[in-house]
Design a protein around this nucleic acid. Structure first.
Lengths: 145, 145
DNA sequence: ATTGAAGCTTAGAATCATTATTATTACAAA
DNA sequence: TTTGTAATAATAATGATTCTAAGCTTCAAT
């Protein structure tokens, strides 16, 4: 579990902007998030982080995640009132939540769709954030022999 | 606070389908929800319900709301991990969450937009539910003299 | 009317993700 | 080194929601 140089630089720059220090824990939590393309909960991050940093505490994981969010290096993803999930994919995208596996998949959002989404708002409504999520099941489309 | 005849019938029919009884509490909670066009939390419903039914308990309000949801007379609306809100507007619609007032407004969703939303899903993803929400502020568009 | 079973309501306890608190540690500036 | 500030760790507290246990209603069958 090692943070690539470019990510490390991004983190250090972002932290510097907020007068925060690049600590081992912050780097490690960021590395954990980047190492898999899923959307772990704070608790799952904690479990993964402990593997190579056994002394890290859950509170620190929460703190680091919150700081990564305020640095805009990570996004929070919420489904109903389930535990918050963390997502290092900064591109504008939607989420698909699989009812079976409980996994979350990213879904690309074409820019023109985003625009037509905002166009449904009545006059006087200014949206700073649009959230789009799907719930359903993935069906296996592998052709059988 | 009185439940209109038609709503009362809807409730009784829906409950009958699930072999549930039309109790005073259930009717009252439904009436509370219908009486305002906002999206109250369970706690807010509880406060309103107590005004004309002081003996009702918070647990009962939660129970009634959950039953109304399973009857499909009411929808749950979640924003991040804020308390769940309840919405008797059954039409397919999006929500606008005002950062200033913390109120939630319904936004109509044209059917063709809904269709194009589902069309962004890759093959093999079957969405049973689409959630679309906006966060932002309402700007006053009243023309000044 | 009485009984019994099933469904309801209530009060309070329990749960669980998250946040707050506090003491300790790390580290930079003086 | 001393001093001050920020970060971490352990633990307690919070708050929405759910669960549990007990006592009520309702209603069908006696």
């Amino acid at each position: 579990m090692k943070l690539p140089e470019t990510a490390k630089n991004r983190l250090e720059d972002a932290l510097k902007q907020l007068n925060l220090r690049p600590t081992q824990q912050r780097e490690h939590v960021f590395a954990v998030l980047l190492s898999e393309r899923d959307h772990p909960t704070a608790d799952e991050v904690y479990v993964r982080a402990k593997k190579s940093m056994p002394s890290i505490s859950l509170a620190t994981v929460y703190n680091c995640l919150e700081i990564l969010v305020s640095c805009k290096l990570v996004k929070q993803v919420n489904f109903d009132r389930e535990p918050t999930r963390y997502c290092p994919n900064l591109a504008e995208h939607a989420h698909f939540h699989c009812n079976d596996s409980h996994r979350v998949y990213d879904v690309d959002l074409p820019q023109d769709l985003l625009n037509s989404l905002k166009s449904v708002l009545p006059k006087g409504y200014e949206a700073s954030k649009v959230e789009l999520s799907f719930h359903g099941t993935r069906v296996d489309t592998t052709p059988s022999k």
